[in-house]
Amino acid sequence: MNNSLAGSLSYRAWYMWRRNVDVSLVTWKTNVLPPLLEPVLYILAFGFGLGAYVQQISYAGRAWDYLAFMAPGMVAVGVMFHSVFDTMYGAFVRLRYQKTFDALITTPLSPEDILAGEILSGATKGLFAGAAILLVVTLFGLAQYPSSLLILPLSALAGLLFASFGLYFAALAPYIDNLNLPVFLFINPMFLFSGTFFPLDGLPAWVRLLAELLPLTHLVNITRAATLGLLSPSLGWDLLYLVLLTPAVAWLAIAKMKARLIK
């Protein structure tokens, strides 16, 4: 059996992608709409609610309306939640309950095709969420163009990264309840401490250092700069971090899940 990743990966990964997209198109009312509206709730609650008290926030040497500061964070959070949960819970359900992988593994798709397709469809959900929330942010008059268009390819990249994380967690979890652990230890801390709701500058140095390690921090940095029209060369480091981390996590996720599928 050809065990090299490159040797086993083929165009058939798109068949898996299309299968998952087809499912989303069938179930979009229950599975796509509510989570999409969630960041809008955050914008309303924090942006308007909290924003009434925190009127101005200092970021990148300028004072901003709180709503303008936090809205780009919600775009990044939407990308993360949609892609990571799609592969985490979605792939776990397909693995354990729907037995989708068992059905596919006897078709001409290789395990690598199936798992790469999972990551691609998770990333597609992330991109879709990023685009939809950006539209909302734009309608609020909070996005600068053309720099905000950069958020689309960036969401696709981040979607690949977070979908890979989700698949990795699904591969590690013996039971579906075990998935609470990465949510508690990894996803929720990112949601709160990646510069989404407040700038990292005010935090103690060691917390800032930890925050710098979180992938969402770098996605938030670029997304916010693109939304506010503050693009600068120093963001290249954030991009480099995401570009290097994505294939590493994708490889790890595929290897781990393949080992679980084929014993």
Binding site: Y15, R19, T100, D102, A103, P108
Partner: peptide, 23 residues
């Protein structure tokens, strides 16, 4: 297969048509 591993969200036709893509 031994266990039912159809796509539960799809109709009968869609199950067959989506599966045929893999070939």
């Amino acid at each position: 297969p031994q266990e039912v591993n159809l796509d539960p969200d799809f109709s009968v036709v869609k199950n067959l048509v989506v599966y045929s893509r893999y070939y």
